[in-house]
Design a protein around this nucleic acid. Structure first.
Lengths: 387, 387
DNA sequence: CTCGCTTTCTTCCATCTCGGAACTAAAAAA
DNA sequence: TTTTTTAGTTCCGAGATGGAAGAAAGCGAG
């Protein structure tokens, strides 16, 4: 029983907002939804009826009832059927494709990686299609595919420019759709990650929200009014190369002197330590040594901590977000240099300003793939009508 | 014939959006309004009818018709009657009260200043009331008063804390209303200025917009989704004291070393030059000498230019506004150090990033008073239902 | 066990707003 | 004068909303 890619459409705007509220914020009674969306109880009966009929929402038993305290008729929570549909998400790096299967609630239920040996678009699409077959075996109700790629993506379908893959104008979504028969969306990987966190993660329900990722590069995502601000021009990793955090900072092969990229990314931190010590260190080694007080790594890590604090403070000062999510493979930095970061933030902010809502999330490539899967969820829920 | 303070209410949301569209963007035909608000022509007839009946809008002769090129039935622009109501705006500084009268379109039609010799709340209210009488003499249709004060203002009515006036919890709006019989709103001066620019100035119709003011202090205002983001905590001038733009920058009595306040405000620039030369310079003198190449002022001005460029670049990088308005008494800096500013901005941004939409506006205290008057306009148009 | 209380949810209806089709109005072009 | 073009109006049906009244479902007191 393969479900078609029809999505939830057609839904009226009111119905859609109810569906999204439940999807994003978990099971909720009609009264609760009415309160959150500022609607009358009557409207809620009307709006939920078709959603229940189409089995998009179901009534679920009341969760951990605060029995005894409660009075009156018990509420009847509504919930989405999280595993009524599955979604595939892929993150393509230069030498690996990471894939996950998620539920409608964006919980990862399976994951799978395959090395990428060629950058030929058709071969990549074939690989994604093969992984799709594997991942959707024994899992009939797959509703869509999301793919995250570093680089510029146009119209959620075409990779406009991706230096690390050497692509220009590759209609990846189409290639994958042809080979899988499933609807596919392609998006910049950071953008996908930000969408995922906005819908299902740290940015849930927030009006102003920032995502900062540290890893091989520096990523930045801005969410205003609950919607991600699309990048314009300078895309993705490119940003941080020009954020000068310390004009007297280290000079590295990548990024300008003292830039966020030079100071914060894993390759450049490793470069700095290697240049000073003459031998190769892993990122974890550097952090561990710094924690133990070895001078050279400690200096580099402390400098990175100060840079990160400066960066976070600047963002907090100018954007005034309700929360800043710090994610990526490089956030281990916070374990070692957390105090430096905190101090630097405090040092660069008005003492009476609201404390920065900083949240740390260790994330790996599967989280990026999960982000891509969220795009597929959004398409299903909202229809193709996305920005 | 004193018009009551009833405002335009009650207006339906649709009617209000039409009224605001015309108020803010100038005379417009029904078709044009329909296009901008994405409404049907039929709706426009319906929505404009009551507005025309209440004389809130009027039909005006078609402006500079591109005769000859035009075909079909000529359009019939609608406009507000700009001088159907007048609004008073006051800006209170520690030694002066600046007042203006504006039209509904926020054009200044009269201005008036009076020295402030005491900081006693009642005396200040009396002075504002006296100025109100003078300004509204021969001008019967005054609809409201807006007052801008440096410091923290609560509920658009009470000055929560204003260090320079030595106030704490002064219900200024009430005091003025009692003495004038006119509705009064009080707001932080920078906030008022930002509102004015958002409705009637550089931020008109923009989604993401930033105002940066340089003068006695540094002011910052953020507009997202067409609405000003309210300050939380660290208010107003206080901000910039902690924005460190150059850790090795000058140390001044006010603001941290190398902070925006130290580097950019007029008093601190004058302090730097005085400290180095041993004599007092006016701000204009400093700029002129710098322009002529005199080394010491030139160094201070160049440093200020770099700081401003850094600041603008940071804002552009993180907030990605469609426009940044640079205003205040200190923007003369741009005439002398404009190139340095531009260079520094370019230096701190991704080369492919969209160029910064930087707009310069020389403004004096009357522009701040005008900003306060806009608050009164907003209250009239939107009703008390403001944030 | 029943009655009353409380809270949730449903039913029903008056109201409001909108879009769309058909129509009128006004000017230029043929 | 007729046709074309654009602006604006009239009219009506579709859809969404809130509010009032009522039904439902549990709890506890008597």
């Amino acid at each position: 029983m393969t479900t078609s890619a029809e999505g939830w459409l057609p839904l009226s705007p009111g119905e859609r907002s109810v569906a999204i509220e439940v999807l994003v914020h978990g099971p909720m009674s009609r009264t609760e939804i009415a309160r959150r969306l500022a609607l009358s109880p009557g409207s809620l009966t009307r709006l939920t009826k078709p959603l229940l009929e189409s089995r998009l929402l179901v009534e679920v038993p009341e969760a951990g009832a605060p029995a005894g305290v409660r009075q009156g008729r018990p509420s009847q929570p509504l919930d989405v059927v999280a595993d009524s549909r599955y979604f595939l998400g892929f993150k393509i790096t230069s030498d690996m494709v990471y894939g996950v299967v998620t539920t409608l609630r964006s919980e990862i239920v399976a994951r799978h990686n395959r090395p990428l040996t060629t950058h030929d678009p058709v071969d990549v699409a074939e690989l994604v299609a093969a992984m799709t077959r594997e991942l959707s075996r024994d899992r009939p109700r797959v509703a869509g595919i999301g793919i995250g790629v570093g680089g510029l993506v146009e119209g959620r379908a075409v990779v406009g420019e991706s230096p690390f893959l050497g692509w220009r104008g590759v209609p990846l979504a189409g290639l994958v759709e042809e080979r899988t028969g499933l609807p596919a969306v392609v998006e910049n990987d950071t953008a996908a990650f930000v969408e995922a966190e906005t819908w299902f993660g740290a940015g849930r329900g927030l009006d102003r929200f920032v995502v900062l990722t540290i890893g091989a590069g520096v990523g930045y995502g801005l969410v205003l009014g609950g919607k991600r601000v699309p990048y314009s021009g300078g895309e993705d990793r490119g940003f941080g190369r020009h954020w000068i955090l310390d004009p007297h900072g280290p000079l590295t092969p990548d990024g300008r002197r003292g830039s966020a990229v030079s100071l914060l990314t894993i390759p450049n931190i490793r470069y700095q330590v290697r240049a000073a010590t003459g031998r190769d260190w892993s990122y974890e080694e550097i952090l561990a040594s710094a924690a133990e007080g070895e001078p050279m790594p400690a200096r580099v890590v402390e400098e990175a901590g100060r840079a990160l604090g400066t960066l976070v403070a600047q963002i907090a000062n100018f954007v005034m977000p309700q929360r800043i999510l710090l994610a990526g493979e490089g956030v281990g930095l916070m374990d070692v240099a957390g105090d430096v970061v905190e101090d630097t933030i405090r040092d660069n902010r008005h003492p009476q300003a609201e404390p920065v809502g900083l949240e740390i999330k260790v994330s790996d490539f599967h989280d990026w793939a999960r982000g891509a899967a969220v795009l597929a969820i959004q398409v299903l829920v909202l229809g193709a009508a996305l920005v």
